[in-house]
């Protein structure tokens, strides 16, 4: 068993102050990045026994931003600063938002674009990226004739980015497929025929690739990725602890509630985990982590939750 996070992390109150000052022109970018570095170091140091470490991607303004800013095919709208990326759009059922990327051409990349994400550790690291399906549903497509064509090109671009990420120290890519659970809850999800294929095309020797499904019913999402060639499937056991899962993949089990501020007891988490494992069949390793990104709890709370995961990992 190993541990890993399941998405980007929050910044500390001190860093948020510097960020605002930087936005308003009263602090330098260097000061902001130094503050980010301090938070990243604190996050990483709490994950010392994790299978894959994450610096929280604290310098990413949202999960799409570096992709929208650096890959070809994404447009800038006639505006200034971050506003040029796209309109402010609600992030599912939260009070947080992302800027909706605007696609105006063929999505391609050189391969080095994501290498700016510095892991802040020499240990194997995990990077979180939007899954092809979610990206295709959460951006504004002004170019492709179909979401499938867009998802295919995006997957190819991600695949091309793998060597640079490996050189950076990333050994795991966790694709986040939030839109699946969201649409399932609304009854609007239909599996596109390209779904598994786009996941399969994201690969590189030495890189573990997984897909995680926050706020989803495990029995509904595991079959989606099971037919692809990815290595790992992540399920949200806080949302759905009852599902019976049978897969030939490795598993990531989200056992910690990243939407609540209360700190789980080790006993409580282990009991959720035990319940899931009793009904689950999988091959190889399994990992535990939060059900979703820790971005929705304050920084100190995130550190505390990571500590609990770290202790369970040690048991």
């Amino acid at each position: 068993m190993g541990s890993m996070l399941a998405g980007i992390s929050p910044r500390s109150a001190a860093t948020s102050r510097v960020h605002r000052l930087f936005r308003d022109g009263y602090a330098e970018e260097k000061q902001f990045m130094e503050a980010i570095g301090r938070d990243a170091d604190a996050l990483v140091s709490e994950q010392s026994n994790f299978a894959y470490l994450s610096y929280g991607q604290l310098d990413w303004l949202d999960i799409f931003r570096p992709i929208a800013r650096s890959f070809s095919g994404f447009a800038s709208r006639a505006s200034a600063g971050e506003d040029s990326v796209g309109p402010v759009t609600r992030w599912f059922r939260t009070n947080t938002f992302y800027r909706k990327p605007l696609v105006s051409g063929k999505i391609t990349c050189v391969g080095e674009e994501l290498a700016g994400a510095v892991p802040h550790s020499k240990k194997p690291a995990v990077i979180f990226l939007p899954a092809p399906y979610s990206l295709s549903r959460m951006i504004e497509n002004n170019f492709y004739g179909s979401a499938g064509d867009l998802a295919v090109d995006y997957s190819k671009a991600l695949s091309k980015s793998m060597p640079a990420l490996l050189r950076r120290g990333y050994k795991c890519v966790l694709l986040l497929d939030h839109m699946v659970g969201y649409e399932q809850s609304k009854g609007t999800f239909r599996v596109p025929d390209w779904y598994a294929g786009t996941l399969s095309s994201i690969k590189s020797p030495g890189m573990k690739v997984g897909v995680h499904y926050p706020s989803s019913s495990a029995k509904k999402v595991v079959p989606l990725a099971d037919s692809s060639s990815i290595d790992m499937i992540g399920i949200d056991a806080v949302f759905d602890a009852e599902a019976k899962v049978d897969t030939g993949k490795e598993m990531m089990v989200g056992v910690m509630d990243s939407t609540r501020v209360g700190i789980e007891s080790e006993k409580g988490v282990i009991s959720i985990l035990r319940k899931v494992l009793e009904k689950t069949s999988f091959s190889g390793r399994f990992y535990i982590g939060p059900r979703d990104r820790l971005y929705d709890v304050p920084f100190e709370t995130a550190l505390q939750k990571i500590r609990v995961l770290s202790r369970i990992n040690g048991i």
């Binding site: 948020s16 303004l61 929705d296 304050p298 709370t301």
Partner: peptide, 17 residues
């Protein structure tokens, strides 16, 4: 107050419990 969260860009808010 539980702590500070990021809404988007450089906009943050305090969330209560």
């Amino acid at each position: 107050t539980a702590g500070v969260l990021n809404a988007f860009d450089a906009n943050y808010f305090r969330k209560g419990i």
